[in-house]
């Protein structure tokens, strides 16, 4: 049960094991999309479920995401060759101008990647133009912004405005400790989530996946 053991290795937060098992499965000729879907992505869904139920703490979610990402890195060359169907969409993500806090943003980026999205992480202290240019250049489906400081949060609205002014078709998502659904709605963001697993759900929902 090769794919099942990949699933188990992600749940046990063992990156090395995941890499080893993914290589083994590829060698055996197992369908790469089943390694991805039933092995890695299914495992992250389970991790998200355990987190929501309070069984998993945040560091466990983070380590599982790292294990899964390690697996995807091995899988990536084969995925591009086999089919692009497994790519769920492209996300440009960053912490807004004036803000250096990136723990939450990194977790969301990793979880999105784990769910099969192509993620371009712009880092921290990202200004409006950088968001807009990256969205154009990468042909992003979603632009996701994070802020921890209440004083930098208003910058999110500027980015959303600029995206609309540039008539980009991408959806926008916002998150971070001070951000609420009400704030997200008011500034015209398409999506908001309280936590990282929720962000993945929201991204799927926005793209109708």
């Amino acid at each position: 049960m090769g794919v099942q053991s990949i699933f188990d290795a992600v749940i046990s937060l063992d990156s090395d094991k995941v890499v080893e098992l993914v290589k083994e499965e590829i060698g055996k000729g197992t369908d790469v999309s089943s390694i991805l879907e039933q092995g890695l992505i299914a495992a992250m869904d389970e991790v998200g479920k355990r987190f929501s139920e309070g069984q998993f703490f945040v560091p466990e979610m983070l380590l599982a995401a790292q294990a899964m990402k390690a697996g995807i890195d091995v899988l990536r060359p084969y995925l591009i060759r086999s089919d692009s169907k497994s790519k769920k969409g492209t996300v440009v993500i960053g912490t807004v101008k004036g803000d250096l806090h990136d723990i939450g943003k990194n977790l969301v980026a990793m979880m999105l990647e784990g769910a099969g999205f192509e993620v371009h992480d712009l880092g921290v202290d990202v200004d409006t133009d950088t968001f807009v240019n990256a969205a154009k250049e990468k042909n992003a489906d979603i632009v996701a912004m994070s802020a921890l400081l209440t004083t930098t949060m208003p910058t999110m609205e500027e980015v959303i405005k600029a995206i609309k002014e540039n008539q980009l078709k991408c959806k926008t998502m916002v998150g971070g400790a001070p951000v609420t659904q009400a704030f997200a709605s008011r500034i015209g963001a398409d999506g908001y989530s309280e936590d990282a697993p929720g962000a993945v759900e929201k991204a799927r929902e926005l793209l109708g996946l």
Partner: peptide, 9 residues
């Protein structure tokens, strides 16, 4: 100390 159950501040 963060509440590691959720990462809450």
């Amino acid at each position: 100390v963060a509440d590691m159950r959720s990462g809450a501040y």
